[in-house]
C-alpha cells in the first residue's frame, strides 16, 4: 500500500485529481491511451463525488500483480449513496443533470470496477487499470 489521499471539495480539486492520476499513470508506464482513459475515468468519478455527495476523497495507489504494475483509485464519500446501483450504471441515467455517462462510461475505461453503496451510507468506488 503506497497510497496518497487527495480531497475532492471543489472544481479545482477535480483538476488536481486529474493531474495527480496522470503523473502516477505515466510513472508506472501506462500507455498514452491507457493514461488518457484512467485520467478521464478519474475526472468523471471525482465530479460524481462533488456533485452527488458534496465532496469526498480519492486514494491514488500503485499496485502490482508481481510483473504487472497497475494504478488503483478509490473514491469515497459520505453522501446520500445509491439506492439502485444497476440503474445508476445504465448509460444515460442521471440524477445530476449530466449526460449519465459518468459511472457507466468510467467502467468501460478501466480494467476493474467495484462499487459499494447503500442509501445513507455513502459510496465507495474502486477502479484499477493495469499496464499491458
Amino acid at each position: 500500500m503506497s497510497g496518497q489521499e487527495l480531497p475532492i471539495a471543489t472544481n479545482g480539486d477535480v483538476v488536481l485529481v486529474r493531474q495527480k492520476v496522470r503523473s502516477v499513470a505515466a510513472e508506472i508506464g501506462l500507455s498514452l491511451v491507457d493514461q488518457t482513459k484512467i485520467v478521464t475515468a478519474a475526472s468523471e468519478l471525482a465530479r460524481n463525488v462533488l456533485v452527488h455527495a458534496g465532496g469526498g476523497r480519492v486514494e491514488v495507489e500503485k499496485v502490482s500483480t508481481g510483473l504487472r504494475p497497475g494504478l488503483r483509485l478509490v473514491f469515497s464519500d459520505e453522501g446520500p449513496g445509491i439506492s439502485d446501483i444497476a440503474q445508476a450504471m445504465t448509460d444515460g441515467f442521471t440524477t445530476g443533470g449530466g449526460l449519465g455517462l459518468g459511472l457507466s462510461g468510467s467502467r468501460r475505461l478501466v480494467d476493474e470496477f467495484d462499487l459499494v453503496s447503500a442509501p445513507g451510507e455513502g459510496t465507495r468506488i474502486m477502479v484499477t487499470k493495469w499496464a499491458r
Partner: peptide, 14 residues
C-alpha cells in the same frame, strides 16, 4: 483532437 482522446471519448460513450 489527440488520437488517445478520440479513442477514450468513443469508449466513454460520447
Amino acid at each position: 483532437m489527440r488520437p488517445a482522446v478520440a479513442i477514450t471519448l468513443v469508449e466513454l460513450g460520447l
